[in-house]
Design a protein around this nucleic acid. Structure first.
Lengths: 198, 198
DNA sequence: ACCTGAACACCGTTCAAGT
DNA sequence: ACCTGAACACCGTTCAAGT
């Protein structure tokens, strides 16, 4: 449980600051994908060609660096949900969105744990984005339920538990192994209604 | 990927060694439940009243300490499966076993990740126990499938992915929150057959 | 056989000094 | 406003010396 308003990293205005900020983010993404969310910060700074203090200036906590590194992916997910909301097939829309969600949550080891925590901890940098994503996913779920395609008692919170579980299983097999898309299919088949309404 | 034969901790024969071994194990269990599998080893040694070298003598790797601390729970799980195999209701038997499995996998944060790795990494201390558990669970699954109560295309590997995912979701909410027994119920309802054979 | 604890390595994090 | 890197703290891990 974190407290207070979380720090959200901002791209600096001054040219040298912006250059370093971008270099750190690029190095962080590479390091996270190789070593997971606990990748060495000193190593990230070194690869970005900056001193460790510069990394801390832009990203005062590890969580703020992870947030900045995954912000775009989460924003994409929200945008995708908004486009899919117009789909004529709400179950297909939900499935596609869930696939993308699981893929993003398992971008690197440790991410899905951070996101799961952020979901219910307001003091966390990723909390705002997680909330937006939660809302957009809940809309797709509601539509699929209204069409009688998904069991009506499934809550958005449960949907995210299922997505997180699927992402975690996939994450376990990173980077080499394939990643059990079968898990998500089982979940999907498990939550669709047994006797679709005529 | 670990390599070579893993170290399996053994309870020493000499009285002083046995006393320390037991004290370390008790301290480790407490620490793991409070801080997860990454709990400080120095802290565990201190709480057990031994020097850090003594901890390393008995448990040369963190994985060997985790294995020793969770060995009994896994053995219980195997024994339970053997008793449940005689049950007249194979679906009920499978469900009960899955519940206990998820509960054990989420004894402390980080355990389910270690077990999931151990499942396919022979060089890991928990590999042997994980294999035994896998076999005993597979037997219950096969029985439930033979009775037409569980979808026949579900493999034991997939069953363990589902169990691991459920345990991970539960682990996320440790120690305070309740732990989503709903996840497992959704999974169970998802894998039972839709049109049970007459 | 077993125990101790100093020694080393590595990394996170802060902060005074600088441009 | 931003950068640098020394300094400190903490912890994992090894090993020489001891009983």
């Amino acid at each position: 449980m974190t407290t207070g308003t979380p720090h959200i990293a901002q791209r600096p205005k001054r040219a040298d600051g912006r250059r370093n900020y971008d270099a750190i983010l690029a190095a962080a993404r590479t390091a996270f994908e190789a070593d997971g969310s606990e990748a060495s910060l000193e190593n990230i700074a070194a690869r970005a060609g900056v001193a460790i203090g510069t990394l801390y200036r832009h990203f005062p906590t590890r969580a703020s660096l992870v947030e900045a590194a995954t912000r775009d992916g989460l924003a994409d997910l929200v945008a995708r949900a908004e486009r899919l909301a117009a789909s004529p097939d709400p179950l297909e829309a939900l499935s596609e969105w869930m696939e993308q969600a699981v893929r993003h949550f398992s971008t690197f080891r440790g991410l899905v744990g951070i996101l799961a925590q952020s979901m219910y901890d307001e003091g966390t940098p990723s909390h705002a984005m997680c909330n937006a994503m939660h809302r957009s996913g809940a809309d797709l779920l509601r539509a699929a339920q209204a069409a009688g395609r998904v069991r009506p008692d499934l809550t958005p919170g449960e949907l995210f538990d299922l997505l997180s579980g699927a992402a975690w299983v996939r994450e376990q097999s990173l980077p080499d192994r394939d990643g059990s898309p079968r898990f998500l299919r089982l979940v999907l088949e498990g939550i669709t209604t047994r006797n679709p309404e005529p």
